[in-house]
Nucleic acid binder design. Structure first.
Lengths: 230, 230
DNA sequence: GGCATTCTTATAACATGTTATATTTGTGAG
DNA sequence: CTCACAAATATAACATGTTATAAGAATGCC
């Protein structure tokens, strides 16, 4: 690896930094490829050579952020199901800490126009959550006949949809946490061993109450005059 | 309403028809606004006057399709939870009957770049599902302390995410039904009264087995070399 | 029937993601 | 040092969603 590769890596870094800065400053709208190239001090063609597409760049930015796992390492909760709930709540909290940035990044994540196979699931993320679920299974909290991979997939589905609601503006930020918690608790209650049900049921009721409060404190969602009937 | 409105309505219909035909013939790629306008025999500006954006048009196409509720009316199952599962499976079946078309339509649905407030939830759809859930609750299948609206939202989340996996190509078509069924069964098991759990548990195991078969019969999902770590 | 309004049309233009081309620059190897 | 190669650059071009503008036609009202 001579200086050729080094130069390339440097350009990659500059592009990612420029993208992150532009997103932080202006949100999605400010991040045009021309603005990005100019800010990174490269030509318009270079980001395409190095990343392939705009979406790939935004996702590289997201990948560059890795504060989460460190934060979570400090949590000590013995209850294995509770650990799952806490972990997912912390993730939401991370996003709400920097809403403009994550809103943009997740919007790109949900952008289907592009064929970049990014997959929401990647080894690092998967293994983290698989670990939590495996722990729960070993602690006899999750029924042994439940497939752990599939369970994780179900939890992810719910997580993603809730985030999508947020990106679409169909959910208020403060409803994010209870919504996610409610979904996780419901699914986990369906997958857990009988003796763990009461605790999860409590979490369900808590989340419901929280959501009802929010709902009560604002007007009804405006009726969409036209909508699909899937 | 004079002929002015009639002409407008006619143009609207022609545009929706042209859009549907183009989607059916070529999928998304063939549906450019210029092609659409030409096919509908109107100028490029007209679709924008009448609908506002491309996404709005595609969604109008989706709204135009309403075969589902009629089909479902013929189903007779006494078990109220089973009715929910059957309903959602029928919906999936509807999509798989005409995959190119629905793939395109759902891709548009998931397109966030546009500000059209379509909402996945609309009165007609909501009331259908709310009815099924209310029936289940009246039959003592769903615990009374569970909020029915929130439960429906959770089910929808799962449905949407699974469809998104399909649109993204992260899931095979034949895995769609068991995936959705698994999620519904898990969530419903978390929300149901105790005596209904065994039946749902059975459905969970069934779905898992089906999914494992699919999984076993193909190579591992290709590892994404780079992915985000949300 | 004549006129004003409203909407379509035709057309151009713009923004932006993306690709292609040709030129230049820097690097590594002999 | 020199040369060949690889990759970046500058630049143009393309596709497409969308908007703007001016002109023209249909409609409804008097």
């Amino acid at each position: 690896m001579g200086r050729r590769e080094a130069g390339k890596a440097d350009r990659r870094v500059r592009i990612i930094q420029a993208a992150r800065d532009l997103i932080r400053e202006t949100g999605n709208p400010g991040l045009s490829m021309r603005a990005l190239a100019s800010r990174a001090g490269v030509s318009l063609a270079t980001p395409y050579n190095l990343f392939g597409s705009k979406r790939a760049i935004v996702l590289a930015v997201l990948q560059d952020v890795k504060a989460f796992h460190q934060r979570f390492a400090e949590v000590e909760t013995s209850d294995p199901l509770e650990r799952l709930l806490v972990a997912v709540e912390m993730q939401i909290a991370l996003y709400l800490d920097d809403p403009v940035f994550y809103h943009t990044v997740w919007t790109a994540m949900f952008d289907l126009s592009d064929s970049v196979r990014t997959t929401f699931y990647n080894p690092r993320r998967d293994s983290f959550w698989q670990g939590l679920i495996a722990q729960a299974a070993q602690a006899d909290a999750i029924a042994p006949e439940i497939d752990q991979d599939l369970l994780l997939r179900q939890l992810d589905h719910h997580f993603r949809s809730t985030l999508m609601d947020w990106v679409l503006g169909e959910i208020e930020p403060r409803a994010l946490t209870p919504t996610v918690r409610l979904g996780y608790a419901l699914i986990l209650k369906g997958a857990c061993m009988p003796q763990w049900r009461p605790a999860l049921h409590l979490r369900i009721l808590e989340s419901q109450a929280e959501l009802r409060d929010h709902h009560a404190s604002r007007d009804r969602r405006p009726q969409a005059e036209q909508g699909p009937t899937p």
